[in-house]
């Protein structure tokens, strides 16, 4: 059974998310910072009337903060019943993969950091880390009322 991924880059690493979780791909626009949030939450943006939190994916993955610019891309993802914007460096492609080709993460992290990955797949000879969005977002900790108020 095949499935489609949106592949993108953070730093030099290629990552991928399921295309069905993708709501929109848009260019970076400045965010409004909000207080009392983890450092990887850059702030909020208004996306056609809907306010959504913007996550610095690189920071969330523990790879260092991103200094976003005009060429950075915000990928709007539907995670659970909420939408989040993830800052990535560049969107690559829409890749169609064989689900069987997805390999599980190595599971070497004692504190379960690697659990942010759903699996690893090779696309055109490049290693693509498929993000497990549910786990990724479990600690985003964005107050509910923000989303409501937006």
């Amino acid at each position: 059974m095949t499935r489609q991924l949106i592949t993108f880059h953070v730093g030099s690493q290629c990552l991928g998310v399921d295309i069905m979780a993708t709501r929109e791909i848009r260019a970076w626009s400045p965010t409004t910072p909000i207080p009392q949030v983890p450092a990887f939450v850059r702030g909020i943006v208004n996306l056609r009337g809907m306010v959504l939190p913007v996550i610095d994916l690189s920071a969330r993955l523990g790879w260092g903060d991103t200094e976003p610019g005009a060429r950075h891309v915000i990928m709007v993802l539907q995670i659970g019943d909420r939408q989040y914007g993830l800052i990535v460096d560049a969107v690559n492609d829409i890749a169609t993969i064989d689900g069987a080709a997805v390999q599980p993460p190595p599971g070497i992290s004692g504190d379960g950091q690697d659990e942010l990955l759903e699996g690893i797949v090779s696309v055109d000879g490049e290693m693509v880390l498929i993000l497990d969005l549910e786990r990724l977002a479990h600690n985003f900790g964005v107050p509910e009322e923000v989303a409501i108020a937006a």
Partner: peptide, 19 residues
């Protein structure tokens, strides 16, 4: 920039098409 935006639009279109 236009190419970038067009690419994003096409990606969005692709996403929509996949849906």
């Amino acid at each position: 920039g236009i190419a970038f935006q067009t690419n994003l639009l096409a990606l969005n279109a692709g996403v929509e098409a996949a849906r």
